[in-house]
Nucleic acid binder design. Structure first.
Length: 422
RNA sequence: CGGAGAGUAGUGUAAUGGCAGCACGAGGCCUUUGGGAGGCUUUAGUCCGGGUUCAAAUCCCGGCUCUCCGACCA
C-alpha cells in the first residue's frame, strides 16, 4: 500500500478526556474514529489489525474442531422469553420494533439462537459433541462505556458454543478451549492469566476469565505472583495479603486486569429452556450439556496496545500488525532513492509481503519516522542516498534501538527469516 | 442506574453582560530532506431550543452530548 493513498490522518494532539493509553494511541494513529460514546468506526488501519486478530481466532477455533456459522443480529422476542432473559437482562438489551409492532432484541450474545438451531438438528449421542462459533457483532446497552475500544456498546465478538453428552466430555473440550485461547492471545502478543470468576447469572459453577494484567484494567484480581493462581475479586473476597491457597507460598496481591476473554460452563441451563435433548446409548433421553466461550475483538485489540507500546507509539506484535514492513525512503526526491524504493516496493509486493510504502515526497524524514513509530509497524526498512551508495538498506525493528544494515539483495531473505522467527 | 464534572475553530485556551481573540493543527504556494523544519498565505468556533436584557459565550429554564468514579460487562 502506498502511504500517499492510504486513507488516514494521524493527530498530534489528543483531547484531554481521552485517558487510556490504547485509546490515545489508536486515536492518534487514526486506527479508530469515535461516532458516539462507546461506538467506534474501525478506520482502514484499525480494520487491518482487526482482521488479523479475527483470522488468528478463526484459525485456532477451526483447529479444535469448531465450525463457523453466522447468526443474525436481530432476534425475535419469543426466543428471549423462553429463557426468561427478556426480563432478567432487562435494560442491557437493545430492543426494537418492526412496523407491525413485532419486538426484537439486538443480540448481546447468542445462546438462545444457537440452542434453537441445534435443537432442530440433533437427536442422538452420535450427533455429539458439537462446537459452533461465529465472529459477529454484539450489542449491549451497558451502564457505561469507557476507554475507547476497551468497552463499547457495539462490538465484534467471537462466540463459541459447545454441546456434549456428559460433564466429562464437556471438561475435555473446555480444557482444549483454554489452550486454544492461550495460543490466540500469545499470537497477539499477550500473556493473560486465567482467573477464576463467578458465573453471574449465567451459571452456578466457577467460570474462567482471561485477564491481561495492567494498571488501567477495570477488573480487580487477586493474584499469586509465585504460582499464578488468580481469582476475580468477586469470589476472592478479602483474600489479598493472605497466603496463596494453591501453592501455600506466595502472598496474594491485588492487581488490575482487562478481561479479554471468558469461558462458561452453561450446564443444562439453555438446553432445559429449549428442551434440547439427545438419546443416549441405552435409548434414554438426556439434556445436552453446553458451554460458551467469548472473545471481544476490539477489546483484545486495545489490550494489545495497552501492553505493546512505548513513549513514541504502538509496537504491534507482527501477527496482528496492519503491515509487516514499513518502507521509508528519505530524500525520496533523489532519483536514485526514488527508483530503488519503487523497485523494492514492487519486489515486496510480488513476494506478497505486506508493506506500507511511505512514498510521500513532501514530508521530512523526521516526520516520517515519528509517524512510523506511532503506527508501530514491526519492521522499518529505510532507503537513503547514504545507504544506497553502499548497496545496502537499513532495517530497524519497532521497539528496538538497534539498527541493522543489509545488502539490497538480501532484503526479502531477511524479512522471510523474521517472519518465521517465533 | 447512582454520584461528579464539562460543553467557545480539529486540539488547547482567552474573553465574567458590551468588537469572539490567541496558540498549535489542518489546507495552499515556495524553500527544506536522517527524528513532527522555515517563510508567506488561507481556513475554521460560542452544543441545541426558549427566556431575561438596549445588549447573552457569559444570567435563568429545558433539552442534547461527552468525560470520570461506582455499578455492569467481552
Amino acid at each position: 500500500m502506498r502511504q500517499s493513498t492510504l486513507f488516514y490522518k494521524t493527530k498530534r494532539t489528543v483531547p484531554k478526556e481521552i485517558e487510556a493509553i490504547s485509546h490515545k494511541l489508536l486515536y492518534r494513529g487514526d486506527f479508530i474514529d469515535q461516532l458516539a460514546s462507546g461506538v467506534y468506526t474501525l478506520m482502514p488501519l484499525g480494520f487491518l489489525v482487526h482482521k488479523k486478530i479475527e483470522e488468528i481466532i478463526r484459525e485456532e477455533m477451526l483447529k479444535i474442531g469448531a465450525q463457523e456459522l453466522y447468526m443474525p443480529v436481530m432476534h425475535p422476542r419469543y426466543l428471549w422469553e423462553k429463557t426468561g432473559r427478556w426480563k432478567t437482562m432487562g435494560d442491557t438489551l437493545f430492543k426494537l420494533k418492526d412496523r407491525h409492532k413485532k419486538e426484537f432484541v439486538l443480540g448481546p450474545t447468542h445462546e438462545e439462537v444457537i440452542t434453537k438451531i441445534v435443537k432442530e438438528r440433533i437427536s442422538s449421542y452420535k450427533d455429539l459433541p458439537l462446537a459452533l462459533f461465529q465472529i459477529q457483532i454484539k450489542f449491549r446497552n451497558e451502564l457505561r462505556f469507557t476507554g475507547g475500544l476497551l468497552r463499547t456498546r457495539e462490538f465484534i465478538m467471537k462466540d463459541l458454543y459447545s454441546f456434549h453428552t456428559d460433564e466429562k466430555d464437556f471438561r475435555k473440550f473446555y480444557d482444549k478451549v483454554i489452550k486454544a485461547y492461550l495460543k490466540i492471545f500469545k499470537r497477539c502478543g499477550l500473556k493473560p492469566i486465567v482467573v477464576e470468576a463467578s458465573g453471574e447469572g449465567f451459571t452456578q459453577s466457577v467460570t474462567h476469565e482471561f485477564q491481561v494484567l495492567t494498571p488501567v484494567g477495570e477488573d480487580r484480581i487477586v493474584f499469586c505472583p509465585k504460582c499464578q493462581f488468580a481469582q476475580n475479586k468477586e469470589i476472592a473476597r478479602g483474600k489479598e495479603g493472605k497466603k496463596c491457597p494453591a501453592c501455600k507460598k506466595g502472598i496474594l496481591e491485588e492487581r488490575r486486569g482487562i478481561e479479554i476473554g471468558n469461558i462458561f460452563p452453561l450446564g443444562t441451563k439453555y438446553s432445559k429452556s429449549f428442551d434440547l435433548t439427545f438419546t443416549d446409548k441405552t435409548g434414554k433421553k438426556k439434556l445436552v450439556i453446553m458451554g460458551c466461550y467469548g472473545i471481544g475483538l476490539g477489546r483484545l485489540m486495545a489490550a494489545v496496545v495497552e501492553i505493546n507500546h512505548d513513549q513514541k507509539g504502538i509496537i504491534w506484535p507482527k501477527e496482528v500488525a496492519p503491515f509487516l514492513v514499513h518502507l521509508v525512503p528519505v530524500e525520496i526526491k533523489d532519483k536514485k532513492v526514488y527508483q530503488s524504493a519503487e523497485k523494492i516496493y514492487q519486489d515486496l509486493k510480488r513476494e506478497q509481503i505486506e508493506v506500507l510504502y511511505d512514498d510521500r515526497k513532501d514530508v521530512l524524514p523526521g516526520e516520517k519516522f515519528v509517524e512510523s513509530d506511532l503506527l508501530g509497524i514491526p519492521l522499518r526498512l529505510i532507503i537513503s542516498r547514504k545507504n544506497l551508495s553502499k548497496h545496502q538498506a537499513e532495517i530497524k525493528k519497532r521497539g528496538k534501538e538497534k539498527t541493522e544494515f543489509i545488502k539490497l539483495g538480501n532484503i526479502i531473505k531477511y524479512i522471510r527469516a523474521y517472519e518465521k522467527k517465533a
